[in-house]
């Protein structure tokens, strides 16, 4: 089958970019979307043209490297699927597809479809962990965790940090990503001591990185390849609210002391 692509080409961060038309003539329906781009790139290189840059690594839908917009939808039309796991059999002969990088102030474009998502790493560094030094852990079974809690924590922990939530959100909000980590750690007993500190610090970092705010639209949930639910955002809000309240009270108590 034949696919027509309009791809965002931008040589580097500070250069202007534009949509360029390409055609891939021999697309096999069993190819993955990225394999189709591999074919395009081989053709481009054989013609001496700069291949299209896109991030990808595991190609199994778990590393979170890949991702771009296909006709305005993050990771393309198949729900719960990263673009590396999207196969061409879901498209039709002659389809015209627009490929664009994630768009957000916090995700500057590096080249073509590649963006800089290091803001996510900085948000995790601000508090997305449980502070436990190597060697100081009690026996694994010393902490009993009800199965339901472990399952819910795992639901949230499944986030792959791909950034599709930010890309899909009309406000470029990172709430689903941040909420997922806050929910994962905040649900577990191990995560309780730092629960509110974590919420304050991660939210503050998210604000500083220039992400937008959540307006409860649900576009993030719809494109999330790991089906993370809006519930995690409510959890983040709640923890943040409680944390702010407590921080105030503690500040007041300290003031009197």
């Amino acid at each position: 089958m034949r696919i027509v692509l309009y791809i965002w080409r931008q040589p580097h961060r500070d250069a202007p970019g534009r949509m360029v038309r390409y055609e891939v003539a021999k697309v096999n329906p069993d190819m993955s979307f990225l394999e189709m781009l591999d074919v395009l790139n081989e053709e481009l290189m054989n013609r001496g043209e700069d291949p299209v840059a896109f991030d990808h690594d595991c190609r199994e839908g778990i590393c979170g490297s890949c991702g771009f917009m296909i006709n305005g939808v993050a990771h393309g039309p198949l729900p719960g699927t990263t673009v590396c796991q999207l196969h061409m059999r879901h498209f039709r002969d002659g389809d015209v597809l627009y490929l664009e990088p994630w768009r957000a102030r916090a995700f500057p474009v590096i080249k073509d479809l590649v963006v800089d998502r290091s803001a996510f790493d900085r948000i995790i560094a601000a508090g997305g962990y449980i502070s436990v030094n190597t060697g100081s852990a009690p026996d694994g079974n010393a902490i009993l965790i009800p199965k339901e809690i472990a399952e819910r924590a795992m639901d949230a922990a499944a986030c792959i940090g791909c950034g599709a939530c930010v890309a899909a959100c009309p406000n470029a909000s990172a709430s689903l990503f941040v909420g997922a980590k806050i929910a994962h750690l905040g649900l577990l007993p191990q995560g309780q001591p730092e629960r509110y500190r974590r919420a304050l610090n991660m939210v503050a970092q998210m604000t500083q990185e220039g992400f937008g705010s959540c307006t409860n639209i649900g576009a993030c949930e719809a494109v999330c390849p790991k089906n993370i639910k809006l519930e995690v955002i409510a959890r983040m809000n709640r923890d943040f609210l409680v944390a702010s309240w407590r921080a105030r009270r503690e500040a007041r108590v300290e003031g009197f002391g």
């Binding site: 100081s136 852990a137 026996d139 902490i143 472990a150 994962h184 191990q190």
Partner: peptide, 10 residues
Amino acid sequence: DQCVAQGVPF
């Protein structure tokens, strides 16, 4: 033990 303490949801 270490991984459980870190919050790995086994």
